[in-house]
């Protein structure tokens, strides 16, 4: 029993990472209307920046914050250089461009930080034992970070003027434009937000495992799966689906083995989509 409880905690943690990445994907999809394949490599870049800043300052918190800011900066720069020019093009054109952006980010990360895997230098802490279940204190800290990130994103989306306008653009871009809402302003906010959420996901993933140039790209498929499962364009759905998939994957490992755990989440995805084609929370296409 305790082994399962520990697997479940592990699943929740990886679920939070997948959920955050899926949130970044679903935000961009809802407003810019394409699946952003550069999300994974923005995660990687955020993790590397956090790693080197925390190495230099000795503080993982400072490193993480700078990493999140770097993610926001990458998002905004990529928007201005690439996606602003592709506005109004098909979502396939944007998707292909984002794959290119992903390669470029990964190449730059490789040049700056080299290719060996690295780890965050964290002090070793004895795990707590709660009802005989081992709980890593660092997991609790990461969960708090994830919850704070989510709270910030949802506050921005649902309780601020810029969030209101982002949701207006997601709802009807043409109407937003003739209602005097500047698409550029909304897009800057969107890309900064999605970039920093990706970076936080990358930092969390890096702390849990190791930091490599491929880490983000490898997370892309599960993150897409969670975004679709949650109902594309639906922020709450993305988070819930990420946690669901993460937990199912880890819990299934003893039965199907490590190799097939990723396949399990796609089986779940297929089953859910057969029953509910618009995803767990989706009501129709587009975002709200």
């Amino acid at each position: 029993m305790t082994a399962y409880a520990e697997l479940m905690i592990g699943g929740l943690m990886s679920g939070l990472v997948v959920g955050l990445a899926a949130l970044a994907i679903t935000l961009v999809f809802g407003i810019a209307r394409f699946a952003n394949a550069a999300t994974g490599d923005t995660m990687t870049a955020g993790a590397y920046v956090a790693l080197s800043v925390s190495g230099a300052t000795g503080s993982v918190i400072v490193g993480g914050l700078v990493g999140a800011l770097a993610g926001a900066a990458i998002g905004v720069v990529v928007y201005f250089l690439i996606f602003r020019k592709l506005a109004g093009r098909s979502s396939v054109a944007n998707l292909l461009a984002s794959i290119g952006v992903a390669f470029i980010i990964r190449a730059i990360v490789g040049v700056i930080f080299e290719h060996q895997q690295q780890v965050f230098q964290l002090p070793l802490v004895r795990p707590w034992r709660i009802l005989d279940i081992r709980v890593q204190p660092s997991d609790l800290n990461l969960a708090i970070v994830a919850v704070l990130t989510l709270a910030t994103v949802f506050l921005i989306l649902y309780a601020t003027p810029v969030g209101r306008r982002m949701r207006a653009v997601a709802d009807d871009p043409g109407l937003a434009r003739i209602s005097g809402i500047s698409p550029t302003r909304v897009m800057i906010a969107l890309w900064a937000l999605a970039g920093s959420v990706s970076a936080v996901a990358g930092v969390m993933y890096g702390i849990k495992t190791v930091v490599t140039p491929e880490m983000g790209w490898d997370m892309l498929l599960p993150a897409f799966a969670a975004a679709i499962l949650g109902g594309i364009g639906h922020p709450v759905g993305a988070i819930c689906a990420g946690i669901l998939l993460g937990t199912i994957q880890e819990m299934a490992t003893p039965f199907v083995g490590f190799t097939y755990k990723l396949a399990i989440s796609f089986v779940v995805l297929l089953i859910v989509l057969l029953v509910r084609p618009s995803g767990l929370f989706g009501r129709n296409e587009g975002a709200r």
């Binding site: 003027p161 209101r164 207006a168 709802d171 009807d172 109407l175 800057i188 937000l193 709200r288």
Partner: peptide, 24 residues
């Protein structure tokens, strides 16, 4: 045409020009 998922109040608020809250 309306922002169908936004409330009526939010529909009108979104269209108010020159908001400094447009920027993160």
């Amino acid at each position: 045409r309306e922002f169908s998922h936004l409330t009526v109040w939010q529909n009108l608020m979104a269209a108010t020009p020159k908001q400094s809250g447009e920027s993160l």
